[in-house]
Design a binder for these strands. Sequence first.
DNA 1: ACAATAGTGTCTATAAGACAATATGGT
DNA 2: ACCATATTGTCTTATAGACACTATTGT
Lengths: 220, 220
Amino acid sequence: MMTTVDAVSFRLHQAKLQVLFYRRPCAPFQHDLALPSTQVNKAHDRCLADALLRIFIDYKLPTPAFSEQVITVGGSERDPRGWSASVVYFCLFKDEQMLAQEGWHWLDVAPLLQGEGEIAFDHRQLVTHAVERLKMKSRYSTLPVYLLGEEFTLSELQQAFEVILDVPLNRAAFRRRISRANLLEETGNSRTGNQRPAALYRRRGSGEVLFDQVMNGCAQ
Amino acid sequence: MMTTVDAVSFRLHQAKLQVLFYRRPCAPFQHDLALPSTQVNKAHDRCLADALLRIFIDYKLPTPAFSEQVITVGGSERDPRGWSASVVYFCLFKDEQMLAQEGWHWLDVAPLLQGEGEIAFDHRQLVTHAVERLKMKSRYSTLPVYLLGEEFTLSELQQAFEVILDVPLNRAAFRRRISRANLLEETGNSRTGNQRPAALYRRRGSGEVLFDQVMNGCAQ
DNA sequence: ACAATAGTGTCTATAAGACAATATGGT
DNA sequence: ACCATATTGTCTTATAGACACTATTGT
């Protein structure tokens, strides 16, 4: 039986959530868009996480800032070549590390979930699962920080949440929450523009922070 | 490569959370306790959930009231026979349907997680994963109802949460929460004893209910 | 001065947790 | 009457969301 690890790789680009695909050079689903994937290799992979990392190493892509297993799907109908199983991970990248990768396609998540694009296998469904997980966790954790660069403003962080959750958030409440999480530290620098400069922050050591209450968005 | 589906089957018995094991008749790990499991069968299983159900059918066990995929682990060190992958599900059973199953062992979760018992493979670790998931979801959903019988009192439901979370809960808050969930309906019957009878409830159609706020227990 | 965005103060609503009062059966 | 548990009322605290006010830069 064929067992693969598939990566649903997210980035935020121009206020859109995007997922990484490549165009399949050969059948089945020739010319369709597919998720980067690899067969589990008994000789090289000590565990499934190794196989995931090998995807990015083999394709000379950067290493994800965060990754997490989402689901494993298996069945006889997924691949015309026969029974197969895929272990699906979602991976978060900083936009800046993913500039100008030749031969790769970043697709906006929204139209993709609406059914746009020629997508190979059940990969649209796999993206749906990964987006669901990302949205769910973004409601009660600080996961989206991993989609931002080294330094960022609180407004940029809020926008990351808003893009993922697809709902506007209350500014004051958002800032209180992030402040309580004690997740960030000021870098001392600030981002300037045609307005009041914003303080820049970086992640502090600690990892993901979980909250006792979820965010539901606001009316604004 | 060997791909199996493993079941972490929970029940509540005498105010303890227990997991179902059997004793391995042959090597490797002969005589150790192992989780019920089956190899994915290309001919008989259309998907992974089919393989899970086949475990219970093949062993003539009842069907779980609820099941959910937890994680997939894979690696070269898990099984002395070579690289293997296991898709782990947790399954919830009503205590009453699991009485007197010959040849099966229900182990209390607490000592199991403390390292007690001779457990085959990495199955103790798999139980740890499943318990974590069950605890996490019990903090913000109504999942534990699937561990109770047809009819139950609110005190019994609260005790189910308390056993899983291993923390006492506030009675008034718990009842308000369950009431808001609109998950139950009174059966009209009541449970009698040497005290005021308690109203009996049953699950109403709707499935699992998610809350916006998690329970943290109380001082009592 | 004005535009634009950053940052904060304060009010309301909701729900958790604390605690105690009341209700209702068996003995 | 008394015990044990069920059920409910109410107070406090924490946090989300609403909304508006102040702050600080470039033009």
